[in-house]
Each structure stands twice: as C-alpha cells, then as structure tokens.
Amino acid sequence: MSLRPEFRTYHFAGHDEHVLCFGTASNRQLLIVPPLFDEMNRCRRMLVQAMRELAGRDVGCMLLDLPGCNESHAALEVQSLSTWRAVVADAGEQLGATHIVSLRGGTLIDAGTGLPLWRLAPVKGASLLKTMIRTRIAGDKEAGRSTSETELLAAAQSGPIELAGNRLGPAMVAELASTEPQDTAQLVVRALGQDISGSPLWLRAEPQDDAAMSAAVAADLDQWSASCGG
C-alpha cells in the first residue's frame, strides 16, 4: 500500500475533473464529498491528513473536485446542488466507490448513490447561504457600499451574484436557500464533539489543521466502512 497521493479524474458534462486519491489498490474505496465553497479550503488539510491515515489502514479514499471548484475548468455559476448531486453519483460509479463520506455542505449533495453514507456535522443550505451573504455585505460595507440581503436575493433571481468570492447562479442560490440534508438508507451521522473530537475548522477565518481530529475521523471511518458495504 502506498501513502503517496495519486491523481485520477472523472468525466462530467464535457470536463475531466480532478480527484486526489490514496490507496487506490485497497478493496474499500471511500469517496469523500468535500464541504462547499470556502469551507472546503478550510477543511482540506484536515481531510487529506485523514486520507493518509486511512491509506495506512489499507482503506482507499478519493477526494473529489466538484465542477466549478478547486482545479475545475467548469464555470461555477452554471452549477447547482442538483447538478452536484448527479456529479457525486456519477463520479462514484466511474471511480468504483464503495462508501460515501461527506461533511458540512457536502451532506446536501451526497444522497443519490445508494452506497453506505457517513456524515459529519451536516448543515442546512440556508445557513451556508446566509453566511456568504453576510460576508458579501460586510465586504461591501468596508468598500463604502451599502448592500442588503433583499437586493442580493432579488438580483439572484435573474443572474449570477458574487458571494464571498463565489459566482453563484440563480439555481444554486435558490437550492441553497431550500435544501437540507436528505435522509437515506444506510446512513450514519457523526456530531463533532460528541462522536468525533476536534475543532470546527470549517468555521475558522484562517485555514488550520487538527492532526488529532484527522486521526479520529480516520479511525471512525475505518471501523464504520469495515462494518458495511464494499
């Protein structure tokens, strides 16, 4: 087994999207659906450390780039949660996933695969949207402009709006406002602080890591994935 990262791709809507993989020869292949938007960046190091730990336990894992995010060449403004839900299901098949792992906003798009599903700290789309709207308003205020939530949401009905560095189209804004994690069969939900000890890195203004949390996530995922699916 190798602890070196490997890079694979999946194909969706005319683009090859990047997937960071460890332990590609292992029987278990966990597909990790990242948090959304800025929370993905804040959690990436913790997740990749957990992936290395998993590979050390002979559990393969794959971290998706969603279209429009990270290294993707696709435009973000044409994406929606429905599209990303289809992406997760499609990529899971293309990459041979045996289990699905998601956290935070990833739990809004993880329910279409039929595979065993592990969630950490699920969040409502409306909370993610609200934080991004507040960030936009605060940024505008510092630049001397006054913007209201009502104005932004009205503008988002007819075209893309820029929220906290993300250019989001009407479908994405509408779906974020109305989507909560869906219950599925074979679902386990872990709460931070109760089931997994660690810090809510996704909330932090500055990206940080948490080696103990990565180890706790990996140990729990190893035990869970050995008990179901595959």
Binding site: T131, R134, T135, A138, G139
Partner: peptide, 10 residues
C-alpha cells in the same frame, strides 16, 4: 474581523 463576524452571527 468583519468577515469572521458573518460566520459568528450564523
């Protein structure tokens, strides 16, 4: 900072 305030309020 003002960006952190957004996350704090939510």
């Amino acid at each position: 900072d003002s960006m952190a305030v957004a996350g704090l309020l939510t």
